[in-house]
Computed example of a mutant assay.
Amino acid sequence: MGLEDVWLPRSLSGLVFQWGTGLASSGRRLCPGQILPLFWTAKEPSRVTGLENSKAVCVVAGAGHSASVTDAGELYVWGSNKHGQLASQAAFLPLAQKIEAHYFQNEKVTAVWSGWTHLVAQTETGKVFTWGRADYGQLGRKLESCEDWTWEKQGSFLPCSRPQKSTPSSLQCLTGATEVSCGSEHNLAVIGGVCFSWGWNEHGMCGDGTEANIWVPKPVQALRSSSALLIGCGAGHSLALCHLSVLSTQGQHLKVTGPSPDATEDARSQEALDNERNREERQPETSTQSRSDGCRNGGLVTETL
């Protein structure tokens, strides 16, 4: 599902439909003089143009872009390319366009995930590629200098022309990932049962106990004693379904958030006071009277003859 009033489902026969008008104005502005395909202005499901000869097996959508993987291992993208997430020199792709295989080392793409402004894809050998916006660490790497770009004046013969910003690049540390999930600008991945995180961390969703952005994928230490099975990312939070190890189920190496030392000490002090009060209440009334008389006589207890 898209994030700007656009819906993107896939049928069982591999046909991709889109509807919702949220991106039509951007398309008209970025591609002046071009007539947008019907699916950009449709309020009912409409076939995505450019995928007629392909059978989709996966579809995803970001804030202003969409992507689809076909049964032939090809990756198609369309929509806004504001942050280079479409690996194209066009500012906006009104038609679905294939990202050439050489970007993925000539391997077939088997899966794709999308954040708001970046994409993550995995190939048939388990390699993981990232590209798109990178200013919060979304890509798990720093952009190469040749990937940097600035806006250029659009030429009349290329109405959507602009230099390329980011191209798919492999992250070796994520090779073999069995699960990947993208939030708005952060990501999670599972490799060998270990949960890794990277990207935007303003709300602590990378799970390292800080709010500093994570620029390179690193293990979530709080889950080190468990095996991650499934993961999920929201815009500002993360989830993990884990299998706890035997040691963890016995209470070892399991991080549990509890009361602060000061709170524990206060509780112990209160318990001591309660115990003392209970002991006093159990004393005979004569003892209480004796202590009272002793106090009234300056601590000297006298006996009446």
Rank of each mutant, 00 (worst) to 15 (best):
T167L: 15
T167I: 15
T167C: 12
S170A: 09
S170L: 07
L171I: 02
V180P: 03
C182R: 01
G183R: 05
S184R: 09
S184D: 05
S184T: 12
H186M: 01
H186Y: 00
L188Y: 03
L188E: 00
A189G: 04
A189P: 03
V190E: 02
G193I: 01
C195D: 06
F196G: 01
F196I: 04
S197A: 14
W198L: 04
W198C: 03
G199N: 01
E202S: 13
H203E: 01
H203G: 02
G204F: 10
C206V: 11
G207Y: 00
G209V: 00
G209W: 01
G209E: 01
G209K: 04
E211R: 11
A212Q: 10
N213F: 07
K218V: 08
A222M: 09
A222C: 06
L223Q: 06
R224M: 05
S226Q: 06
S226D: 05
A228W: 04
L229V: 06
L230Q: 14
L230S: 11
I231V: 11
G232C: 13
G232S: 15
G232R: 08
G234I: 09
H237F: 15
S238P: 08
S238N: 00
L239N: 01
L239Y: 07
A240V: 07
C242H: 01
V246K: 14
V246C: 13
T249D: 01
Q250H: 12
H253L: 02
L254Q: 05
K255A: 10
K255W: 10
P259R: 04
S260P: 09
P261C: 06
D262H: 12
A263V: 10
A263R: 10
A263L: 11
A263M: 02
T264I: 14
E265H: 11
E265L: 14
D266A: 15
A267L: 10
R268E: 14
R268S: 12
Q270C: 13
A272E: 08
A272C: 07
N275M: 15
E276R: 14
E276K: 14
E276L: 15
R277I: 09
R277Y: 08
N278Y: 05
R279G: 04
E280C: 05
R282E: 15
Q283I: 12
Q283M: 15
S287Y: 10
Q289H: 08
S290Y: 12
S290P: 00
S292Q: 07
D293W: 12
G294V: 14
C295E: 00
V301D: 07
